[in-house]
Simulated assay, not measured.
Amino acid sequence: MPGDHLAQLNVGRLVAETHDPRVAEFMAALDRVNGLGKRMPGFVWMMEGSGEPGKGNTETKLDGDPRYVANLTVWESVEALEAFVWNTAHRQFYARRAEWFELMPERHFVMWRVPAGHRPTLDEGLERLAHLRAHGDSDHAFGWEFAREARLWRTRACAVAAE
């Protein structure tokens, strides 16, 4: 709807704790990739961690698990998010996610519309993800395939493990 923005939550469980050499390359790229996202046209907001270099938002532990991390952002549109995800260096890291993240047995990515100016909480995003898992795509919570405006994911997306 006009005036609305797009929120997205992506969760994952790292194969090791953030200081472990097995995830060192991923951790070392966080500031660069997040910084790139923040400079993209259409970027609005990102849930931040401590601001400590090389940590991104990995300090936000889900369910008290030091390896279960989240990324929560707001964009002006689906197209703006898509441009970042599929047309920047982010895509290269996304393609290698199996090196750093466990395969999730259920959906780990959700989008939903928010009023311009709204900053969703992590709990809000987790509720949307739970709704998507329980009920499938709807206006309340959806994935790429439900977003009519989404085009790039159809041709640029990397191999799908579990969305």
Rank of each mutant, 00 (worst) to 15 (best):
T155S: 15
L36T: 02
G56T: 01
A162K: 13
E59H: 02
T121A: 05
N10R: 15
R67N: 06
V78Y: 03
E76T: 08
A161P: 01
G56W: 05
R96H: 01
H108E: 07
R22N: 11
F26W: 15
T73H: 07
V85F: 03
V44K: 12
V85L: 02
G125D: 02
D123P: 04
M104D: 06
H131M: 03
A83N: 11
E145F: 00
A16C: 09
G117D: 02
F146R: 12
D139G: 14
R96S: 08
Q8I: 09
R133H: 06
K38C: 06
V110A: 09
N87A: 03
A83Y: 02
R151C: 05
E99P: 01
A80E: 09
M46E: 15
M40I: 10
A16W: 14
H131Q: 07
T18Q: 14
V85M: 11
D65N: 12
A162L: 07
V69H: 01
G35I: 08
F26C: 02
L36G: 02
H19I: 00
M104N: 06
G35E: 09
L36H: 06
L14F: 10
N71D: 04
P21S: 10
G136H: 07
L122T: 13
G51A: 07
A89S: 08
L62W: 04
D4I: 03
R113W: 05
R39I: 01
S138Y: 00
R32L: 13
C158H: 08
K55P: 00
E106D: 12
P21T: 10
W144T: 01
F84N: 06
N34S: 07
G143V: 02
L152H: 12
S50W: 03
L30I: 01
F101L: 15
G125L: 09
H140K: 15
V69Y: 04
M27V: 02
F109G: 00
R39Q: 10
L72Q: 04
A28M: 10
R67F: 00
G51Y: 06
W75P: 03
V160I: 14
T88P: 09
G117T: 04
W86R: 02
R39L: 08
H5Q: 15
V44H: 10
H140Q: 10
H108V: 07
W86V: 01
H19R: 14
E48P: 03
L9M: 13
A130N: 05
P120D: 11
Y94P: 00
V78P: 00
R91I: 10
D139N: 04
E25I: 00
R13W: 09
H135S: 05
A150V: 12
H108S: 14
T58C: 13
L62R: 06
W86G: 01
W86H: 13
N34D: 11
P21G: 11
C158E: 11
V11Y: 15
R128C: 07
P105S: 09
F109A: 01
R97P: 07
L122M: 13
F101Y: 12
K55Q: 08
R119S: 09
R133S: 12
L132S: 04
A16V: 12
G125M: 05
H135P: 02
T88A: 03
R97S: 10
E25K: 12
R91A: 09
R91P: 00
G35H: 10
G42C: 10
S138H: 01
A157F: 04
F84I: 05
E52Q: 03
A147S: 13
G117L: 10
W144H: 13
T88K: 04
G64L: 07
Y68Q: 02
P105A: 07
W153S: 15
